[in-house]
């Protein structure tokens, strides 16, 4: 078990105007980062209802990422 890779699945909520744009820019610049994030685009992190965070954890996310 100890050799098993730590491979958490993280759920991300990305603001359309900044973090989502930054993630696009990271792609354009070919920056490499670990493929553990699954993202949901929202128009502003103001939209992030705490219920979405709880729901994400219930669904099995190892962590919740928000960028805004």
């Amino acid at each position: 078990m100890s050799k098993e890779e730590f491979n958490p699945k993280i759920l991300g909520f990305l603001c359309n105007w900044c973090c989502y744009a930054a993630a696009d820019a990271a792609g354009v610049s070919r920056y490499q980062y670990p493929p553990n994030l699954r993202t949901i685009r929202i128009m502003c992190t103001g939209r992030l209802d705490p219920a979405f965070v709880m729901r994400g954890l219930v669904e099995g996310a190892a962590g919740i990422f928000t960028g805004g």
Binding site: A23, D24, A26, G27, V28, R30, Q32, Y33, P35, T39
Partner: peptide
């Protein structure tokens, strides 16, 4: 693309 193939190329 921007969030996947480009950033996890390896």
């Amino acid at each position: 693309r921007d969030h996947c193939s480009w950033v996890h190329a390896n």
